[in-house]
Each structure stands twice: as C-alpha cells, then as structure tokens.
Design a protein around this nucleic acid. Structure first.
Lengths: 253, 253
DNA sequence: AAGTGGTCTAGACCACACC
DNA sequence: GTGTGGTCTAGACCACTTG
C-alpha cells in the first residue's frame, strides 16, 4: 500500500530536548538569565537528569549555555570573535600584540614539541607563558617554545625566570627576520593547568592553534595556544570575520 | 600546624582513566587496532560503563579513538591536515578546488544567513551543496549561499536543480571580481544531514568554517563548511601546517 | 547550611553491523 | 542471532559557591 512511511524516527530524547531548549532560549530567555536547575528541568520534561544533561552539554558545546558548578546554568552571550594567525604576521611580543606575557622557564618540552622544533630530545628550551583576554574574560592560554639558539644573546639577562626574563626572550626574538608562519587549528580538551587559567574544568573543549614561526629556514619558535571553544570564534584571513549567531536573544537587564 | 596540604586531589576517575588509556594507546596499540569492548574494559578497570565511556568520549574528541556503533572502538590515525581559507584566495569552484559539487537549490536561507547576506527575509537564494574528501574519507560538507543578484546572467540555464545547475551558478560567480574573503572557525555539532554525509552520528563535534566572499563591496557569497573535528586539523595562512601528533603509534599490519 | 552542577553506579533496552 | 556502541533510568554522593 502506498502509505508513506510515517517517519517513525526514534529520535533520541536528548536530541529532541536540545531542539526544544534551543527554541526556548531564542524566544523566552535573555543573555545572562539563569535557567531552572537541572533537577527541576529534568522533572519538567519528564526525563532522567542524565538525559537532560546530555542536551545541556551539547548546547554548552555550541556556545548557547554556560554552566558553573555551585552557581547554575546561564544563557551565554554570542561568541566573541578573536583574530588569530596572519592578522599581524609578526613575532609574538611585537607591537599591538593581543597577548599578555606571564613568565618564562627553561625546560625540556614534550616529545611532540621537540620533534616539531629540530632540537634533540632532553634539550631544554625557553617556555614563555602568555594569556589573552577579551572583553574582560580570559579566552586563551599559550605556551611558546623557543629553542636556545633562536635567542643567542641572552647572556646579559640575569633574571632566571619571571616576567622580566620572558620579555627579554621575546625582545631577542624580534631580531630574527621572520620568513613566514604556519598555522593550524584543531579540537582538543583543556589540560588541568590551562583549564584553571581559562576558568573552566579540566577536559573542557578547546580550540588548539599551533603556529610555527620560520626564520632562516628553521623553526625559530612554536606557539601552542588553547582557546575556549565555548566562547570563542576564531577569525583569520584578510580581516574582520563573519557574524553568524542565533535567534533574537535579548540582553538581560 | 605547618603541614602542607598533602594534595589530596580527588582527581575524577574518568580523568585518570583517560590518562591511563592514552598511555596504553601510545605504547601497546597500533593504528587501526580494535580495543576490547566497553563492557570488558569497564570491568577490567573496575568502573561502571558510563564512567569508562566518559573517558572514551574525551579520547575520541581528541582524535585518538574512533567508535562506530555495531562495530567497535579502534585506534584512530593521526588527524589529516586540510587547507582552508586564504590558501587559494579565489572563488569556490575555481581551478584546484578541493571540493566536489553536488547539487543546487533555490530556497529561503536560515535567518542567520539572510542577515549576513544583505538579502531580505523570505528571499530565496541559490544554495549549492558541496563535499570535500581527503584520503578517501569525507571530511567536510558545505552549504554555499549565493544571492540571486550575484549571478544575474543565469537565464540561459534550464536545469532547475542538480549538479549541472550548481556548476553553472559557480561558473557565473567567477565573473565577479573577488575583493577579499573573511574566515572564521568555531566549534559546533553536526546537524542530522551533515552527520549523514560525514559518516557520523548527529551531534558529533564539528569545526564550522564560515567564509564571506566580498565583491563590489557586498557579500556576494557565504560558505558554511562543517569539518569533522575528530579527524581534521585545519591549516591556514602562509602554507603547509604544523605536524604535532602523539606518541609512537605504529601502523597496524 | 542549602543549593548548584559534576561524578559515579548498576542496571535496562535500542539501533546497527556482521555473520 | 550475536555483539557492538548509543540511549536512558533512578538513584547516590561529591565539590563548589553563596548566604
């Protein structure tokens, strides 16, 4: 019989729930407004708390919600656009740099980094920590790996670590002529230290931007920057960025 | 009393589990090898299956594992680097384009897209579907939104839809002079249709690359491309990309 | 102390791939 | 049919923030 299959698609509950919540966010909630707690929401929709949480997790992943332990779940503001990559096309620490230099250490890098640099294993490199703030919120944490021979004239500096030394290392780096830089973005999860700096729990989804700075045909520095995936939209290329956001969210009073 | 807090950090079980599994993947498994099933693994580590799954989910998010319903969990190969953005700096559909044109329709775009284009609401635009394949695997699905007035001389074409019309639309687009393009990357979750095309379940994490093509001071086209976040590393900028991958994984025989 | 989200358990059933 | 990962439940306790 020509009865068209009545679409008996057993759509998962959490998926349907996510759709319903998403529409409710658009029409009934304002940015910053706090939602009912998970137990109440689960009861209201007639599902187990774990199922509700699966929906909330996805919405948080998409940047629609923000959850904080001990506080509650709030409607997130639209993602902020942050410029990465070829925008400046210059060494880190140069003028108009969006980053704040924290400190510096001389340590053996992870094996994967040592491989990308040409340094041998067990060979210590300068590791500069920096952080990036946008709209008053921390959005990224960076580790900059700089082989010792990229900054050969560092003898005059006595501070063994700290912000002063970090700045000195970056200053020395400027003296090299930057040939080009190579960028890559991939999805990762926040390590414990990054998570603390980004005000998130360990394992939170992050966008990892690795940048290789090439000078004199060699890798003179390697940057591994982790951006909060829930709050950031990375823009690159010619300029600006595309504004694509969701429905008519109002600002909470 | 001056006893230093003995760091009684109750690290979550799934987090510790993830670390253990990650090290095991480096040392004891080869790419493509299949892991024991979830029930066995959970029993082996003395945790509930849900807890084990939390660890597996994170490892999959990081591109270390690949899970397929009805089949099993396998060790994933390193992420493939795919070039996006300014690499070509040209209209879609041009020479050396990595994309495969699928079909075309004339429909009203989502509100968010209509806003980014300057078109009014309810005004239909050309929607070209394309897909991108790398190493024999689908890595991205794209929707290209093209306002009707970006391709004014489309009258000679009779095919109302299909691949032929899609190619015709792209061909017409080449006649405009491209001023610049703006790119952005953000995290998202796969819609049902994208998921099918990417061979993933709905909700799977994806990297959404939105590109705005500017010509004659206006947005002449808007591309929304969703890349599999588990298998892709997006490279952009000057050239190539950085190879950062994990420990000594061997190739399965 | 009370309330929130985060973790964890021990089950059950479902959808899918493969034999 | 058998075995896999995916979904769902109804609890419990923990870590954290706030009053």
């Amino acid at each position: 019989m020509g009865t068209t299959q009545l679409e008996t698609v057993p759509e998962p509950k959490y998926w349907h729930l996510k759709t319903v919540l998403s529409e409710a966010l658009d029409s009934e909630f304002s940015v910053g407004e706090i939602l009912p707690n998970e137990r109440d929401l689960a009861a209201r929709f007639g599902v187990a708390r774990a199922t509700l949480r699966q929906a909330l997790e996805q919405l948080e992943l998409e940047g629609r919600l923000q959850r904080r332990r001990g506080v509650g779940t709030t409607v997130a503001p639209p993602r902020v656009g942050v410029a990465v990559g070829t925008a400046q096309h210059a060494w880190p620490g140069g003028p108009n740099d969006a980053w704040q230099t924290l400190d510096c250490a001389l340590e053996v890098p992870p094996a994967a980094v040592a491989e990308a640099l040409v340094t041998g294993r067990d060979e210590p490199v300068h590791i500069v920590r920096r952080s990036r703030v946008s709209h008053g919120r921390p959005v990224a944490a960076e580790l900059l790996y700089i082989p010792a021979d990229s900054v050969p004239d560092l003898s005059g500096i006595d501070a063994p670590s700290g912000t002063a030394r970090a700045r000195a290392v970056l200053r020395e780096l400027q003296r090299l002529e930057l040939e080009r830089q190579e960028n890559a973005v991939e999805l990762g999860s926040a390590r414990a230290d990054d998570a603390r700096e980004l005000d998130r729990l360990p394992g939170a989804p992050v966008l990892v931007v690795t940048t290789r700075f090439v000078a004199r045909g060699r890798t003179a520095a390697l940057s591994v920057a982790t951006y909060r995936a829930d709050t950031c939209r990375l823009t690159f290329g010619d300029s600006g960025g595309v504004e694509i956001h969701h429905g008519p969210e109002r600002q909470a009073s």
